[in-house]
Amino acid sequence: MSTTIRKVLIPSFGDASHVTIVNAEIQPPAANQVQVKVLYAGMSGADQAMRMGYYPMQKKAPLTPGYCLVGRVHRNGSSSTKFQKGDLVVCLSIYDAQAELVNLPEKYLISVPKGVDLQQATAMILDWNTAYGMVYRSAKVSKGQRVFIHGLSGAVGYALLTLCKLEGAEVYGTASLSKHAELREVGATPFVYTDKNWVMGMNTIGGAHVVFDPLGYESWDESWRILAREGGHLIGYGGNLHMLNGGEARSQIPSITKLLARNMVPFCPQKTSFYYISRDQSTFEPELKALFDMVLQGKIKAPIRKEWTMDEVPEAHRTWTQSGGIGSVVVKIADDVEA
């Protein structure tokens, strides 16, 4: 028997006027699924790209956005026995998190340790887990290295900053001028992206051992120019800046191909890689659990730039590029009455 729920819906692709809140029916979970009552959903640039139909390999409209969620188990499918009703879980859902209830494959649900704040749990699933994999697995950042991060004040950028500082790295990067004072307080050296003074500034001190660049396209060419000559590593990810700032979407395939092709230059000490996160990666769950441990130990705390309600999601889309603050954005779907 179906249940009536409220959810965010993108019925067709386009500007923020295409985002609406609707009543809809949800069926009982399939045998291998768990129905989760959503408490918090994440919100990121991926939501904006999906709304415009520009996210790589995404679903066709209509769709409900929400790349990750924290919630409580509401109902198990007939073959799902790992969790009990009321258990607190997280999921990298990719879609459908911005809804009161969602059916998810049991294999993608991960328990939340007791004591982890719900907003912090939401930020860890995608934003901080992406940063963790890049810092500890792709770049292997170490003490004394110079690290350059584009978008220091963003959700992933701030997570990169925090984790690199924990490893003893010197952190530089780009951010809007209004964020510079706050970023200096946490130990970063910020530049303004648009004036390009960061290129000369980094080369003057010998370049960066690691550059994290989510901007893509021409920015990856510029980031290559600031790598340390003794063997810097440029890590690209994302690549939606042009579209999010109002430009037309461009395929990421040519720029990613060009990024990776730099590794084929003979005797070149620098290298490149492109990073992406997937719930099917064997590293996903253990790295998320490591982050939960760091939260509980007080080693990290994600700043929450904004908390929206589900009814405010259309406004969040309209004002996405205008919002200030530092860190992650979350959407509160429901109160946790079982807490």
Rank of each mutant, 00 (worst) to 15 (best):
Ser2Gly: 09
Arg6Cys: 03
Arg6Pro: 02
Lys7Tyr: 04
Val8Ser: 06
Phe13Lys: 03
Gly14Met: 04
Gly14Lys: 07
Ala16Glu: 10
His18Thr: 13
Ala24Asn: 11
Glu25Cys: 13
Ile26Ala: 03
Pro29Ala: 05
Ala30Met: 09
Ala30Ser: 14
Ala31Val: 01
Val38Ile: 11
Ser44Ile: 00
Ser44Arg: 00
Ala46Arg: 06
Ala49Gln: 14
Ala49Phe: 08
Gly53Met: 04
Met57Trp: 09
Lys59Gly: 00
Leu63Pro: 11
Pro65Asp: 02
Asn76Val: 06
Gly77Arg: 10
Ser78Met: 09
Thr81Gly: 12
Phe83Thr: 04
Phe83Glu: 06
Cys91Trp: 01
Ser93Tyr: 03
Ala97Trp: 04
Ala99Glu: 02
Leu104Thr: 03
Lys107Trp: 04
Lys107Ala: 08
Lys107Asn: 12
Lys107Gly: 02
Leu109Pro: 02
Leu109Glu: 07
Val112Met: 07
Val116Ser: 10
Asp117Ser: 13
Leu118Ser: 11
Gln120Thr: 02
Ala121Ser: 10
Ala121Arg: 07
Thr122Lys: 10
Thr122His: 10
Leu126Glu: 03
Thr130Arg: 06
Ala131Gly: 14
Gly133Phe: 02
Met134Gly: 06
Val135Pro: 13
Tyr136Phe: 11
Arg137Tyr: 14
Lys140Met: 07
Lys143Asp: 12
Phe148Ser: 11
Phe148Glu: 09
Leu152Pro: 05
Leu152Gly: 04
Ala155Tyr: 01
Lys165Asp: 02
Leu166Cys: 02
Val171Ser: 13
Val171Arg: 10
Val171Leu: 07
Gly173Ser: 09
Ala175Phe: 02
Leu177Ser: 12
Leu177Tyr: 14
Ser178Thr: 09
Val186Phe: 14
Val192Gly: 07
Tyr193Trp: 08
Thr194Glu: 15
Met200Lys: 12
Gly201Pro: 14
Asn203Lys: 12
Thr204Trp: 12
Ile205Gln: 13
Ala208Lys: 14
His209Val: 00
Val210Ala: 10
Asp213Pro: 10
Tyr217Asp: 15
Trp220Pro: 13
Trp220Arg: 06
Glu222Arg: 15
Arg225Asp: 09
Glu230His: 14
His233Asp: 12
Leu241Pro: 08
Leu241Val: 03
Leu241Met: 11
Leu244Asn: 06
Arg250Phe: 01
Pro254Cys: 03
Lys258Tyr: 03
Leu260Val: 01
Ala261Phe: 04
Pro266Glu: 09
Pro266His: 08
Pro266Trp: 05
Phe267Trp: 13
Lys271Glu: 13
Phe274Gln: 08
Tyr275Arg: 07
Ile277Ala: 12
Ser278Leu: 01
Phe284Tyr: 15
Pro286Ala: 14
Leu291His: 09
Phe292Trp: 04
Gln297Tyr: 03
Gln297Lys: 15
Gly298Met: 01
Ile300His: 09
Lys301Ser: 12
Ala302Asp: 01
Ala302Lys: 07
Pro303Cys: 13
Lys306Gln: 14
Met310Asn: 10
Met310Arg: 11
Val313Ser: 00
Gln322Ile: 00
Ser323Met: 11
Ser328Thr: 10
Val330Gln: 07
Asp336Asn: 12
Ala339Leu: 02
